[in-house]
């Protein structure tokens, strides 16, 4: 294929645009990182976006963050909620996807409708809150991990993946007299490892980042996940740093901005580390979901 002059100009401009977009996506995270290792006093005086740390690099902020008890507790809480929520959500999703991928199930249509209708209509914030309240789940771990632990979208992704497994595989097992649980665990799941990884990661990221519903249903601060502490530190900028920690006020004030950036960093580091590895699975999952869903 001949490359004309126009082609080359286009390629150059295209590359530049894409580089700019990529930079724009990285810059905010780079800014947070630079801030988190800057000199606290210079940082306090600075307004705007950093492209390089101010002064000599310091890890004082990280040191403080890692020794702050409510951050430690919040981090631990987030991990617990993420593991339990992801486990429950994944198991329910697998079971539902398997059931719905079976042929000749008389009530499949109805069950499918019951599940997908929830994407079109919902009772709203207040009635949902009342249901959770009436089940006495407020201020318990269940209000955090259960209400949104299954997503219809994920069930659909997984179902279409299960449906694409050649039926000869499962039929052979059925003739041998294997039950459905056995077919699921011995035949379907072993050939669905990548979709399983997608679903687990979807749920894990969702639980790691969730904050709003936890804020609604949980008032007990010792149960706060990291994101709720982040909200207080980053958004509300309340004096929780002083309140919770009986720190010398002036020292705490000096370090407050630095502290904020360090907490943001430790909250996003796990995502930064895992996402390049899982990205390709995510892409596959979204594609299956969008093509067949």
């Amino acid at each position: 294929m001949k490359r004309t002059f126009g082609d080359i100009v286009f390629s150059v401009i295209n590359t530049l645009i894409l580089l700019l977009v990529s930079l724009a996506c990285l810059l905010p995270i780079w800014h947070v990182f630079c801030s988190s290792v800057s000199q606290p006093l210079m940082l306090n005086a600075y307004r705007g976006v950093l492209t390089w740390p101010l002064g000599t690099w310091t890890f004082a902020g990280y040191n403080k963050v890692l020794h702050t008890s409510y951050i430690q507790q919040g981090y631990l809480n987030t991990l617990i909620y993420m593991v339990i929520g992801t486990a429950i959500g994944t198991v329910l999703t697998i079971l539902a996807a398997y059931g719905l991928s079976r042929q000749n199930l008389m009530f499949k249509k109805q069950i499918n409708f019951i599940i997908t209708f929830t994407m079109l209509f919902n009772g709203g914030l207040v009635p949902t809150y009342m249901v959770i309240r009436n089940f006495k789940m407020l201020d318990t771990i269940w209000a955090i991990v259960l209400p949104y632990c299954v997503s219809v979208f994920n069930i659909m992704i997984m179902r279409s993946s299960f449906e694409s497994i050649p039926s000869s595989l499962t039929e052979a097992a059925e003739i041998d007299g294997a039950g459905h649980l056995r077919i699921l665990t011995r035949i379907v799941l072993p050939v669905s490892k990548s979709i399983l990884a997608v679903i687990v990661l979807f749920y894990a990221v969702q639980h790691w980042n969730s904050w709003f519903h936890t804020a609604l249903y949980v008032k007990n601060r010792s149960m706060f996940p990291l994101q709720l502490w982040l909200r207080e530190i980053v958004i509300a900028e309340t004096s929780s740093v002083n309140e919770v920690d009986a720190l010398d006020t002036s020292a705490a004030n000096q370090i407050r901005t630095l502290f904020k950036y360090c907490v943001i960093m430790i909250s996003i580091i796990p995502m930064l580390v895992i996402y390049p590895f899982v990205q390709k699975y995510f892409v596959t999952g979204v594609m299956i979901g969008s093509v067949k869903g």
Partner: peptide
């Protein structure tokens, strides 16, 4: 480019 532009999606709303 795809990997980099995909990154913000993984960052929590609060952040």
């Amino acid at each position: 480019v795809q990997t980099v532009t995909y990154l913000p999606y993984f960052i929590s709303l609060v952040v």
